[in-house]
Amino acid sequence: MNYFIGIDIGSTTAKAVVVDHEGTILAQTVQRSGYDFAAVARDVFAVVLQRANLQRESVTGIVSTGYGRRNVDFADQQRTEIFCHARGVHHYFPGPVTVVDIGGQDNKVIHLGPGGERLGFTMNRKCAAGTGAFIEEIAYRLDLSLSDLNRMAEEAESEVTIGSFCTVFSCTEILGMARRGIPVADIIKGVFRSVVKRVSEMDSLDGKVVMTGGVVDHNPIVGQMLGEALGRSVEMPPHPQAIGALGAALIARDLHNTAVKS
């Protein structure tokens, strides 16, 4: 039996996924990336090995991805998060799709063709507006737990409009709203609306849209709101935060299969 591991060291969280030769997920984990990417890579690797009850020697291939991909010195190959998210999404949604990934500091729109081939992609400009970092900053300023945001947005009776692109100025705007007594739930829903607007203006979101990343994993209402904006439902794979790591694991498997064939 061959086993493959994908490790995604993102700016905010580190993820690892183990798959077998059929692509079945055996274990996965997510934890904060912190500042030592090499150490967190070893940590998530050890966690998934233990959860899958595997020894290091029984792992056939490891692919790393994410901003910290070069810090994973035990990986056999590195691939960008664009490639890995595309591969992970194609696993669940074969055929042409548009992937919208909202990460810790990067948003990505990736267009996939019928065979999962990447036709093009767009990343956010040099600005964290609309990313996970934006939401985290707002939660910090309002002294709210990230785990409460989705519930609060669902309970909102209305929503505010946030006018600024800039995270810092948005915070100033939001604090002004809070001072005026606007319900926090309405503010949070407005924050999510702002995220939806930012990703909607990055690129054309054609055809079937699949959302990934930690933001929609923890706040599925964002997917629902994007669907409302597009006028059609938006899909999500299981555990969207780990889809890059899954893609990396599947690429490790693909590389092995190609090598065996040749």
Partner: peptide, 12 residues
Amino acid sequence: QAITKIEAFIEQ
């Protein structure tokens, strides 16, 4: 960010 974009483009 630029390196990631360029590498992803070459992968594409």
